[in-house]
Write a protein that binds this DNA or RNA. Structure first.
Lengths: 346, 346
DNA sequence: TTGAAAGCGCTAACAG
DNA sequence: CTGTTAGCGCTTTCAA
């Protein structure tokens, strides 16, 4: 007597399977006495409707998918030294905050959230696998192979967080990276008189590219000396080495403008190890506004993204498209805010 | 030409649907040239297999479910005053850390995770809804109606985090609440000579009950004066009021032993508002070991639970049961560690 | 208001 | 190695 189905419930209640189905999906269409009998029979049997069968028959699942980073490949968060604690990922990072927004909005809209993550970033089958189970998919920029995403986007609405490649058939939710970078550079130059700025970061996603390009354009616009960006690569080692090199060569800029908070925290830590005063001798800025920036010493001047709202917005766009049966609305660009703190000299 | 199916792919590749199916599920059983043709046809068409159909036919979904708290009903985290910041849920809480462990282990095991949360805690249909879509379900203690859980547990393996009611047909993953509470009380009494201890917390879940009962038993065993627990209820107001009352009456205990870190942070904050020195005039202890305890002033002495491991263990138990087709192994009890910090006087 | 019956897209015997 | 053929459990016209 395993796994009772509509047939079992129907038999138990002395009705047809159609009535059982109606009893659950459109209770108002069933005579109330019949309804009661069906519900009673169902609970007596411990009936649990099959989501798969329902999804197949309906053609919709009322679930959204999130294809996330492969955590293990991610940096483990602010370095222990920088955060003063021994564990790995102590503070919530950008992706965690965004995911939280997604979870909340899904709950609000009555959708379940299916989280999938492949072991290797460009794994086509993993993303297709989660796509096959949901009515709409959210993915972080540049974690899925574009061809796989294209196939998925042809079937269900897709939203890429942090900017889709230009020309993509699906929209994105991103922030005003250029505006944020401009606010940082303007502040550094206008309020603190900095002129030699060095960028720390690397390309790899539309967001990172936008930040770097904007930084370069600003240097040019303002007639500041162009500088080679410190390529962060993956892991902290390269950044630390680059900082060491600057120190040994005696060539410290007025400020390190970092592409992310995590990088900025590494820079801060590398500088502290060498006893370099921040912001006295060099300023440091971040980008994202994760919690750890408020707890570092000095606190980190950064650009705060509305992370929870990014997630919520993506869900709203998806649900709107799904329920109206249309393509999702065009990409959204959310505003950012400069948060001045100790690391720039304020 | 919407949503290509196995039939479309089969036609495009000139084979039968069975071959298409095999090409995806058991590639080694298909001649490699045929396999190539099928895969090629599939990608040409942008084929995305239907998870619903697959789940229905296979009888398994390779997804696990997590029925979470309804976040909005939750306290919004350490109070802003206590954490010194303006936002709501700034720090990851117990449930967040556990969820993280679940996500990681699911990813490691190749399972997708389906997250569901009802608007009202005892909502039977919401949990049954997620249960119908997955091969195994994890839920936090006391968030789901026992009858609903029982029905679900009769179909798929279920694990309750934080202790199932005695006599439940499903296992739980919990921690050594008694041992943790004993460590706290022993430390307070033996290392700090405290004798008048007041408990802050309330019942409501097996874990909370275990902590309170142990506290009482310890008071009795050690011949300490029995005290009425401060019933925390929901929200901080009652706790704050209780603290006020103690202060106004001049009757401060030697220590407030709190059932959770969040409560302890509220107590800490209420005491600070009144200028009461902690630990000078009264000690305070928590339970859980969330991040915020390391950042409060003073830092909080607490009992650290292996939160990530709790989540991981639950997933492992579930997957083991699913893949071996047996009932899950019996409940697991994980160890805890006393973390002495500033709030007890150390 | 209820029932009969035709799928939804895929898997897995079982044949060939 | 590949094709035929039943289902898997539910929804949803269309009739009654």
């Amino acid at each position: 007597m395993r796994k009772p189905t509509v047939y079992d419930v129907a038999q138990e209640a002395g009705v047809s399977i159609a009535t059982v189905s109606f009893a659950f999906s459109k209770p108002e269409r069933v005579k109330s006495s019949t309804l009661a009998e069906v519900l009673d029979a169902a609970s007596r049997l411990g009936y649990v409707p099959s989501g798969s069968a329902r999804g197949l028959a309906r053609g919709r699942t009322r679930a959204l998918g999130l294809y996330a980073f492969d955590y293990l490949l991610e940096p483990s968060g602010p370095t222990p030294e920088a955060s003063g604690a021994a564990d790995g990922r102590l503070f919530p990072l950008y992706a965690d905050e965004v995911q939280r927004g997604i979870e909340l909005e899904c709950r609000d809209r009555g959708y379940a959230l299916m989280i999938g993550a492949g072991r290797d970033a460009q794994n086509t089958s993993a993303i297709v696998d989660v796509a096959g189970r949901v009515d709409g998919l959210i993915t972080f920029a540049s974690v899925a192979a574009p061809e796989a995403l294209a196939a998925v986007a042809a079937r269900i609405p897709v939203i890429e967080l942090g900017g889709a490649e230009p020309g993509s058939a699906w929209p994105s939710v991103e922030v005003d990276n250029a505006g944020g970078m401009r606010a940082v550079v303007d502040h550094l130059v206008d309020a603190h008189g900095a002129s030699r700025l060095e960028y720390v970061g690397s390309a790899g996603s539309p967001e990172m590219t936008a930040r770097l390009e904007t930084f370069r354009a600003l240097q040019a616009d303002r007639g500041l000396a162009a500088t080679d960006p410190v390529d962060a690569g993956s892991g902290d080692a390269r950044v630390r080495r680059a900082i060491e090199a600057r120190l040994d060569g005696g060539a410290l800029p007025d400020a390190f403008v970092c592409a992310t908070d995590q990088l900025a925290l590494v820079v801060l830590d590398a500088l502290r190890e060498r006893g370099v005063d921040v912001p006295g001798r060099v300023a440091v800025t971040g980008f994202d506004g994760i919690l750890a920036t408020r707890l570092s010493a000095p606190t980190l001047t950064t650009v705060r993204q509305p992370m929870e709202e990014i997630g919520r917005r993506a869900v709203r766009m998806l649900v709107g498209a799904i329920e109206r049966g249309v393509a999702p609305e065009p990409s959204a660009v959310l505003p950012v805010h400069l948060m001045v703190a100790g690391s720039c000299g304020c």
